[in-house]
């Protein structure tokens, strides 16, 4: 479904100063697979996501989504950033309808779709609130609803729960699993929480420090549907240790 083919990226900061962020990243994600991307901070995870979403052109290599080479932002890809990135002057409803508004869908149609999506992310009754009236967790739910509006085949999440407290984070993780089951789309999510990755993902891609590349891929063979309690199982503990070792660059 998604193929990242030897993608390298160098940021030309100044004429005499360049930062090599990614070096020959290879990654393949199957249809409806949930893949988490972990790695030390500054290793190029956000850069990789920006390249996959078409916001940034790689220095070398290419990204293929559904057999099409990515050359720019595409409605097939939905994106959620670390900050909810809501427009503060728009209500929840208006934020969620934005992608369809930009695509020229009629008001009635897009509002109907948005109301359904708002219910799906558990914000029924909040459609007319402004972002300033929402908690961090609620704002991130709105961002997820917005990203799902164009029914993307691929959902990219860049530390979507990174700014939330631990409890909200767990709840939203479970919610994301529920939504993913209902909507059946492919998910690639960056997280800095190993247990979150173990709980959510089918596979965990571990990146090396900068210049980033995929150092190891850990298969998560916990049964689905998953629940929060599974993190305390022996298998989950082994997987967590394996991922941590991979991040540190140790052989198991």
């Amino acid at each position: 479904m998604l193929t990242v083919d030897h993608v390298s990226h160098v940021y030309q900061v100044a004429s005499d100063h360049a930062v090599e962020a990614l070096r020959s990243v290879r990654l393949a994600v199957r249809e409806n697979e949930f893949v988490c991307l972990v790695g030390p901070s500054g290793c190029g995870k956000s850069t990789l996501l920006r390249i996959i979403s078409g916001l940034l052109a790689p220095t070398r290599g290419q990204v293929v989504i559904n057999r099409e080479v990515v050359s720019g932002p595409h409605p097939n890809v939905g994106q959620v950033f670390q900050n909810a990135n809501l427009m503060p002057w728009r209500t929840v409803l208006e934020n969620v309808t934005l992608p369809l508004e930009l695509a020229g869908i009629s008001r009635d149609q897009r509002e109907e779709a948005a109301h359904r999506m708002i219910r799906l992310v558990g914000l029924h009754g909040f459609a007319n609130r402004l972002p300033a009236q929402l908690s961090g967790g609620m704002a991130q739910r709105v961002a997820i609803a917005r990203a799902l509006m164009q029914s993307p085949d691929l959902l990219l999440l860049d530390e979507p729960f990174g700014a939330l407290d631990a409890l909200t984070r767990e709840t939203l993780g479970e919610e994301l699993l529920r939504i993913w089951r209902l909507r059946s789309s492919t998910v690639l999510m960056v997280t800095h929480s190993i247990s979150e990755a173990v709980l959510l993902a089918d596979r965990i891609a571990v990146m090396s420090p900068r210049p980033g590349h995929i150092r190891e891929i850990v298969m998560v063979d916990l049964p689905r549907p998953r629940s929060l309690d599974m993190i305390h199982t022996r298998r989950a503990g082994e997987l967590t240790r394996a991922v941590r070792a991979a991040i540190r660059g140790e052989d198991q």
């Binding site: 920006r50 979403s53 078409g54 916001l55 720019g72 932002p73 595409h74 409605p75 890809v77 994106q79 950033f81 900050n83 990135n85 427009m87 934005l98 992608p99 930009l102 695509a103 164009q150």
Partner: peptide, 14 residues
């Protein structure tokens, strides 16, 4: 904010 430009671009805004 730059993030909002990114958001608009990711939604193929003209």
């Amino acid at each position: 904010p730059q993030e909002l430009y990114d958001l608009m671009r990711s939604m193929q805004a003209t």
